[in-house]
């Protein structure tokens, strides 16, 4: 489903964020990306979600080469993914409901169908009673769950999460992992960057470990 072949990403004015990275992820898999801060986890996720293009090498998503995709085709590629950003990227000028409905608007879903799906997504993350609340009034864990609701509302086949449990305490983190597990169980591919041990010890999933932009080991604990 997702295939990296000798992928290198270099940002202008800095060293290579990723060097010769090759791996592939199958549909329905759950993959952790680990590594120290600055190892290139976020870059790898951005390349996966067609948010950035590789400097060299090829990124194939559903057999389509991201580098060769026309600019007008990129948005449609991005719609395959639900992304939970490291900094949430919630919109603080509108309530939870309006935040979650945004991807549906982008996908052209509107009216009662959209409202139904927004409430279903909010329900899945346990925020149904907060649909009218402004995101700023939510706790860190609730904001994280709101970001997850927004990522899943358009029913993407791939979920990408960048350190979703980063600065949450253990019980909140376990909560969040549980939500992702539920999605994975119904066939959604989950790709998650993390540096905390909790997620790793609790699960038996594949781990891609990055060190200074290079894949140091690809291990499958299955």
């Amino acid at each position: 489903m997702i295939q990296f072949d000798q992928v290198t990403k270099r940002y202008p004015g800095s060293d290579e964020a990723l060097k010769n990275v090759s791996f592939s992820i199958e549909a329905g898999e759950w993959v952790f990306i680990t590594g120290h801060s600055g190892a290139g986890k976020s870059t790898l996720l951005k390349l996966t979600a067609a948010i950035e293009r590789p400097t060299s090498g090829t990124v194939l998503i559903a057999n389509q080469n991201i580098s060769k995709l026309k600019a007008s085709a990129i948005p449609f590629m991005r719609r395959r993914f639900g992304v939970v950003f490291q900094d949430h990227k919630l919109l603080y000028d509108r309530n939870c409901f309006e935040n979650v409905i945004l991807p549906l608007r982008i996908n052209g879903v509107s009216g009662t169908e959209a409202a139904k799906r927004v409430r279903a997504a909010l329900d899945k993350v346990g925020l149904l009673h907060k649909e009218k609340a402004m995101p700023i009034t939510l706790s860190g864990g609730e904001q994280q769950r709101l970001a997850i609701a927004r990522a899943v509302v358009s029913r993407p086949s791939i979920l990408i999460a960048d350190e979703p449990t980063g600065n949450l305490d253990a019980s909140y983190a376990a909560d969040i992992m549980g939500i992702f597990q539920a999605f994975n169980q119904v066939g959604v591919t989950v790709i998650m960057a993390t540096h905390d041990a909790l997620g790793l010890s609790a699960s038996q999933n594949r781990v891609l470990h990055l060190s200074h932009g290079q894949l140091s080991k690809t291990e499958s604990t299955l």
Binding site: P75, F76, K89, L102, I106, N107
Partner: peptide, 10 residues
């Protein structure tokens, strides 16, 4: 920016 990341067309 967020819309763009989520696949909004221009």
């Amino acid at each position: 920016e967020v819309s763009n990341l989520m696949g909004a067309t221009s």
